[in-house]
Design a binder for these strands. Sequence first.
DNA 1: CATTACCTGCAA
DNA 2: TTGCAGGTAATG
Length: 280
Amino acid sequence: MPELPEAEITKRKLKNLLGKKIQKFWTNLSQNLKNSSYKFIKKDIVNYKINKIKRLGKVILVYLNKKNKIKILAFHQRISGRLIIQNKNQKFKLSNHIHFIITFSDKTQLFFEDPRKFGIVWYGFEKDVLKDKYFKNLGPDILKISFSTFKKQLLKHSGQIKSALLNQKIIAGIGNILADEILWYSKIHPKTQIKTLNLIQIKKIWQASKKIINKSIKLGGTSMRNWLHPDNTIGNFQNKTFVYGKKNQNCSRCNTKIIKIKSSGRGTYLCPKCQTKSMP
DNA sequence: CATTACCTGCAA
DNA sequence: TTGCAGGTAATG
C-alpha cells in the first residue's frame, strides 16, 4: 500500500467528491467490511453526502452526513488496494479486481480495486468505527509527530529499529519502502537495537522520516505495481529511491553495492557500508 | 523475536 | 514452478 503518501494523495484527490450524494453501494467482498454488514450498508448509506475527507496513518476516512447524522466510510488500501474516481462521462476499462463501488446521484463512481483482497472498508458512526482496535492502537502520525513524542514512542519499544518504524502502534504511516529509505538516509542499519541508538541518531531518523515522506508525497507517491492516483496519475517515488529496489546498484553516497536482506520479515535494502549497527 | 496466513499476479 | 510483492494479525 500504499503507505502514508499514497493515503495522503488519495485523500487529497477524493476531495473532488465533496458534496456528492450516495445513491448505491456494491461489493463482492463483504468479508472485508468492518463494523457493518453489506446488507445494512446498502440500505443505510443511501442519500448520505460526502462532507469531509481525512487521513489517519494509512487509512482514508470519508465523513458522510445526512440531516444531523454523521457516519464514516473508511478505506485501508493494505498492499494492493487503490481508489479510483470515474466521472459521469468517463468509461474506464475496469480490471477484474474492483471489489467495492459507490455510485453517486450524478453518476460519478468511486471504485476500490484490490487484486489481493487484503483491503479493509469500515462503515458506521465515528465513535463505533474508531473503536476498532486498529484505530484504538494507532500511534501518532509520522508527519505530525514532535521529536520528543517520537523519541518517547521509540524508547517504549525494544527490538530492532526497522520493526519499530513499521509498527503502526508506535508511529503511524511508515511502510516497507519508506522504512528502508529513512534508514539509509539516517545511516542506520535496519537491525540496530533501539536501545543502542543515541539521541543524535534518533533525531536523524525523525528528521529523515519527515524528509523522505514529504519527498514521496511531492513525487506523487509510489506506483510500483497497480497503484495510481484516484484520477490515474502515475506516482514517481519508485524512480527516486536511494536503496529500495536497487539491489546490486551503487550507493549514491559511498558507491558500495546495495544489498538485499530480510529484516522484520520483510525484504530490506541497505548499503552495507554506510548503514552501521555501531555508534557513529 | 521469526514465521505463517490471508490472496493474486508476475518475474525469475 | 517457486518465490516474492506497498500490510497486518495470529501463532510459536
